[in-house]
């Protein structure tokens, strides 16, 4: 008998073991929901799947009577657009300042302490300041995401730039490269796949800040809806919304990973051959 640490499940066993916890959770929910509903048919805490299904149909396919809009798609569009703006602006800032900080000692000496300081401010604590400065509109919601994840992205990218072997920077100079050319041709292309990695890691926080901002300062969006229907204990709306948000988060992460694999094949084979996960 081999040691447990040396035993690897085969493909079908991996599938089975992976799905098992999901199946157990599902069974657990159905049993608990059934038991509660048997006692009180109007129970709202753990609605039956039929109730949830009706709610999903109403939210996803029927226009809202008051606004004439289909709620789920409207909310999704608003939330994704805020997320895209917030993450996009942060990624750009992270890339520019990360590369500058990592590549040029004078910029690093100048900006690195400030970025470290900013990254330690809890973004939620300055949310009221954002509302005061930017008002209760789109801007302060996007700004919360930007303020929340940009310092992390800058610090991560700066670190990735510093990890590029010094030999490469010296080599580029012996090939006649200027400071600008080194950043453009040697550093920038090498940190792009690492930027995607960093963005993937920061997406969890981005969603957190998005939903927090929407809960407080919005009139639409996925986070807004969840917090709105909480007043009526509408678990039949909250639960599918949470599943939907999770699915969206998964799809975005999946897409970013695929983009990275297709665009930077050298990066993934390189890290795989170093024994790190691709």
């Amino acid at each position: 008998m081999k040691k447990f640490i040396n035993l690897h499940p085969n493909k079908s066993a991996r599938w089975f073991l992976g799905i098992l916890p999901f199946a157990l959770l599902l069974v657990l929910y159905l049993t608990a929901s059934g038991a509660r509903l048997a006692e009180n048919p109007n129970d709202k805490l753990l609605p039956a799947f039929t109730t949830i299904g009706e709610s999903v149909y109403r939210l996803a396919f029927e226009a809202n009577k008051r606004s004439g809009e289909i709620l789920l798609w409207g909310d999704t569009a608003s939330s994704l657009s805020r997320l895209a703006w917030g993450v996009g602006v942060s990624a750009l800032a992270g890339l520019v300042f990360g590369v500058l900080n990592g590549a040029i000692p004078y910029v690093r000496a100048n900006l690195s302490p400030l970025v470290t300081f900013l990254s330690l401010i809890p973004p939620m604590a300055i949310l009221p300041i954002l509302f005061i400065v930017f008002g209760l509109g789109e801007l302060s919601q996007v700004m919360l995401i930007v303020i929340g994840i940009t310092p992390f992205l800058i610090r991560d990218l700066q670190q990735r730039v510093l990890e590029i072997p010094a030999e490469q920077i010296i080599k580029a100079q012996t090939l006649g490269a200027s400071t600008w050319q080194i950043m453009l041709r040697v550093i920038l292309p090498q940190v792009l796949p690492r930027l995607i990695d960093a963005v993937r890691l920061s997406l969890g926080s981005a969603w957190l800040f998005l939903i927090a901002a929407e809960a407080i300062a919005s009139t639409d969006g996925l986070g807004y809806r969840i917090f709105l229907v909480r007043r009526y204990l509408s678990m039949d709306v909250i639960l599918p919304y949470v599943v939907w948000i999770t699915l969206l988060a998964f799809l975005i992460d999946f897409a970013l990973r695929k983009i990275s694999l297709w665009s930077f094949p050298w990066f993934h084979t390189q890290t795989a051959s170093n024994g790190k996960p691709a």
Binding site: P165, E167, Q168, I170, K171, A172, T174, V186, P189, Q190, F264, W266, F267, Q270
Partner: peptide, 13 residues
Amino acid sequence: RGIVFQRYSVFPH
């Protein structure tokens, strides 16, 4: 002055 190091002399990307 050109240089060749033992490692990391070429650009991986």
